[in-house]
Write a protein that binds this DNA or RNA. Sequence first.
DNA 1: GATGAATGAGCTTTCATTCAT
DNA 2: AATGAATGAAAGCTCATTCAT
Lengths: 195, 195, 195, 195
Amino acid sequence: MIDKKQLKKEQIIQSALELFAAKGFYNTTIPDIALAVKMSVGNMYNYFTSKDVLAKEIIKYISVYLGQKLREINEEDISTKEKTRKIVEIYFKIASLKPEMIDYFLRIYLSNREVFKDGCEGMICVNEFVTEIMIYFEEGVKCGDLREQDFFSAFGLFMGYLGGMVFLKGENILPRELDAYIDDISHNIYKALSV
Amino acid sequence: MIDKKQLKKEQIIQSALELFAAKGFYNTTIPDIALAVKMSVGNMYNYFTSKDVLAKEIIKYISVYLGQKLREINEEDISTKEKTRKIVEIYFKIASLKPEMIDYFLRIYLSNREVFKDGCEGMICVNEFVTEIMIYFEEGVKCGDLREQDFFSAFGLFMGYLGGMVFLKGENILPRELDAYIDDISHNIYKALSV
Amino acid sequence: MIDKKQLKKEQIIQSALELFAAKGFYNTTIPDIALAVKMSVGNMYNYFTSKDVLAKEIIKYISVYLGQKLREINEEDISTKEKTRKIVEIYFKIASLKPEMIDYFLRIYLSNREVFKDGCEGMICVNEFVTEIMIYFEEGVKCGDLREQDFFSAFGLFMGYLGGMVFLKGENILPRELDAYIDDISHNIYKALSV
Amino acid sequence: MIDKKQLKKEQIIQSALELFAAKGFYNTTIPDIALAVKMSVGNMYNYFTSKDVLAKEIIKYISVYLGQKLREINEEDISTKEKTRKIVEIYFKIASLKPEMIDYFLRIYLSNREVFKDGCEGMICVNEFVTEIMIYFEEGVKCGDLREQDFFSAFGLFMGYLGGMVFLKGENILPRELDAYIDDISHNIYKALSV
DNA sequence: GATGAATGAGCTTTCATTCAT
DNA sequence: AATGAATGAAAGCTCATTCAT
């Protein structure tokens, strides 16, 4: 019983995620989502008390997903340089295979402050994801690979860079596929952060 | 006479820019803007044929403004390293003094594709700005300071990084002022891009 | 359930028909209609996707209604002369008892081309009605009562004449009631069309 | 001086007539008309105190024009039968050469009661035109060609028929040109009205 | 849990008319 | 006479949310 409800919830999250990422938060209506999940509009509200709440649950869902992927890399016994590359790889892989996730992160979560204002202050809703980047960075520093510096500067570099590239890709501005940039980008990042 | 109309237009652009950046495109209404310019709703449409058109004029206005600032740096007779630092400085300075400009760029222009779809394809509406970054990069390569690589990879690094930092600042996540990061960031960028 | 929705739809059609006929298409607002049906504005759009669509459904509704009345006359086993008179009679009867129908036909449907342009090309939306006039005419020709001539010439005479009279009545120009003209008019029409 | 103003007025009437006939009363704006006359919106109001007043002046202008054409026929020394034909001919000729006039009559004047309600009661604004039809009819009766009957019945036949044909033509429903129907129609009308 | 009709506030846009110049 | 910026009321339509069933 309880599992069934959880399952429905995740179906809604997945469909809403795709629609929000594709059309934007304000251009996606609850009826749109209900249609996609093949559920009545009214019933949607038995699972999420409002559109905003749904949006917040989605970003948490994404954070957990991405955090999990990063954790797997962090747990590997490889050099910081290799980790750096693997993170770039997985980020671009997700951007290719599940573009709605990265898109949601960049275009919905980062850009609609008013929606996430209450309940996602600071990094509450992307906690799992940020934590893994933090671990990557701190371990890199600890083992002497990375230069000690303000974490946020490193975080901004890493995430801003990757996000920027996905943005450019989304605008059809990049002349090549994302994968083609993996070498350049991981090289640049490691070069910037290393001692 | 003709000047007066142009002046009013710029007043609208400035007010709308602030409101859009502060509250988002869909949460800013034409009546909101009209109120801010002390003008009737109907009269707004004598200056801009639609809300979308206004949004597009704003991004062009910003692009010209930022482009001009960057051009001044590009025209200085200084090393690439110094230019890199000056660009970071000016970007953060604008983000502090006219935060609505960078916010508009990041949260309105980059995130509401549907609004800018027609008329701002590719980089049409941010042309002036991008061009200057391109000049910075190509001259850096030419004089042997920067490593030759795909421009977009370099562009993504530079702009993604700076944008990311402003985002973090906007979320009140950064423990220090933006200025405090200038050293780290310009160092990181130059290190990443240099030969 | 399904019947209930259909019923509401017809209530809207009836109320809108009356309002459009009385005040014109552009002077009747959706709020006006909603008020008349005691329904919220928003809910109106659960029944008709736009004001134009509503207008088109109304003309089809009228066409079916009038067509049905004419079919009953066509199916009677009487002379063409008698049929002619009965058609004039029923037309004037409807113009008296349900004046909104004829008014809608003459003043809304015929006069607002732009509204009916898409979806009511040619005679699509008044098909049932025109068909019966065609049957009346062709049978009259076949049995030797009516002169063979271009159908549209006969149609224009019949419908233009009746419409013209209702117009004059509507303008309070006619000195007598419509019924008082039945003899003259059916005589004139039959005289004009007969061999 | 006074002539110049009168001239401008007629230019406005002509342009407005075309626009109203083509796009309808409510879809033609004062700016539209001003543009067509190459005059400022504000100045329009020095010639006509309101859009409604303009519409009324136009119908009077048309009535005078059509009345004049009919008077010429009425003054000819020909049989009623020939007059009937000539009236049909001139009506169709105008419908071909100056379609905006007949269209205005049928689609603007007859269909937008609310606009002409005050100031064009009864037949005030189409007086010249109706008068000539009346003269045609009464002279026809006097000389023994036409059957004595209620004038409005005859008027409705004549005008309803001709208007109906032009309507059908306007809807692209008629398979042939209007001229091709002149024989049939004048025959039908004369047959209907003659003794 | 499930349905979808119902609500109503709110949005963008239009336009006849006015008025300062 | 002439201009066209300015006004502001009102329109069509949307949509998050509620609620009777």
